[in-house]
Design a protein around this nucleic acid. Sequence first.
RNA 1: GGCCCCAUGGUCAAGUGGUUAAGACGCUGCCCUCUCAAGGCGGAGUCAGGGGUUCAAUUCCCCUUGGGGCUACCA
Length: 491
Amino acid sequence: MDKEIRLRFAPSPTGPFHIGGARSALFNWLLARKTGGKLVLRIEDTDLERSSRESEENIMNALRWLGLNWDEGVDIGGNYGPYRQTERLNLYKQYTERLLAEGKAYYCYCTDEELEAERQELAARSQMPRYMGKCRSLTKEQTASYERAGRKPTVRFKVPAGRQIVVNDLVRGDVVFESDGIGDFVIVKSDGIPTYNYAVVIDDALMRITHVIRAEEHLSNTPRQCLVYDALGFARPVFGHISLILGKDRTKMSKRHGATSVEQYRRLGYSPKGIVNFLALLGWAPNSEQEIFTIEELVKAFSMEHVAKNPAVFDIDKLNWINQHYMRQMSEEEFFEAAKPHMIEKGCMTGQEDGEKLAWLKKVVYTSKEHVAYAAQIPSAVAMYFDDDFDFENEQASAVLTEESVPTVMKMLFEQLSHMESIDAANVKGVFKHIQKTTKLGGKSVFMPIRVALTGNQHGPELTEIIPLLGLERTIARIRRSLEKAGVMSL
RNA sequence: GGCCCCAUGGUCAAGUGGUUAAGACGCUGCCCUCUCAAGGCGGAGUCAGGGGUUCAAUUCCCCUUGGGGCUACCA
């Protein structure tokens, strides 16, 4: 029981859920599922200004959408709650009082201006800007006078001098820091809210977290946290700092690198399976050469030992490639559901269709299955089925219709079509065969003019797929229109 | 500036004191094919630089360079 592995994912609900956060969550989740441990979802909302219930919900929704569940958290409770930091204020207070009483922390009355001046001065002497301990030993009189002046103090942690702090990290090994490089840091803000570096320690300790797996940006803060663990007599957890996800230019992923939030990818119609698969491969590699993983397979294969130390660039091409696999796995029904919002947005449908029209839409949409990486690409992939008033894509395309054999081919095609009662891939194929046979023309001379006349385009799906979907009438109308437009002939 | 982390092709990456240095994405050639895509078969492309240690370094150590993070009453 006491050997049970307990992990946590502790996001700040301060904005859209970042893709990097999703990866941290995923790694924690994988480790928890792999080891049969527990995963705690804790909300770190001590930044009152920026935190909101709305982004808290967004984060949880995104997590659920990705298929990452948790065993304890704000919404489901657990034995170590509450799971929202602003609801744990009394807990922090007890420890702060203890630290104060033991002389391990002290009140600091410095104003922003004073602190800023200190930083400036240190910077001017090209020294590391850090708090020099001005309020470390205030007399009763000084304290009283500050209080009379109405100053609200912060609480600072007294950083012991001359100590080495060794952070044992699962992915980086032992990382050594000198306590002298760290100034006395604020653990409780003047409004009584604890800071991140302080609250996180008390929470992780009280929630019995055994492994703290988080992004590398927290590594430099870890020695501070270790100091707090030690001062409070808590055992330190095992740390594991996973590298950051970078944009193409190798700087931290930000808005200018395109979509950075899980929500954005969701809206573009990426599959959660694709995102999870891709994220897992960013900073982790399996023993095998496998690239496509279900989440269950990831659980089996995952290991912290194979987590890379170096930061990884977010490669959208690879995400697209992976996601394409998942698009192809979809049934016609699933694929249609994925396409629907995008089709509606582009005006290709209203969402109210039923009967034959709906069935037709499903078939049309499904033709793009092999061709798209994510659902937002579907409308343009099937645009040709909707636009009867297309233009030729370029002169090369219209030139195809001026080839010598075109009138013969078209006449024959029309004649064949006029005899048809129903139209499907098989009999369309038969028509083409017949034309080829009797005219002795190569496939290209038969197909390409028909393709261009039908779609205005030299590229696209198989004609045997397009024609049945357009139906006899539209097929004839389109070809007739194109031939007239190109001035070739009228039929 | 100080402290810390990181460094194998364009990208994700495997790997080892002696290897022809995997694989995938992307790029590219060929095949298939009316076309595109897919698919199949190929190709180009990497150990950042400099010093050590060693019989032997991509691998171990140091330095440089580059990138990143932290240095907040943000997390």
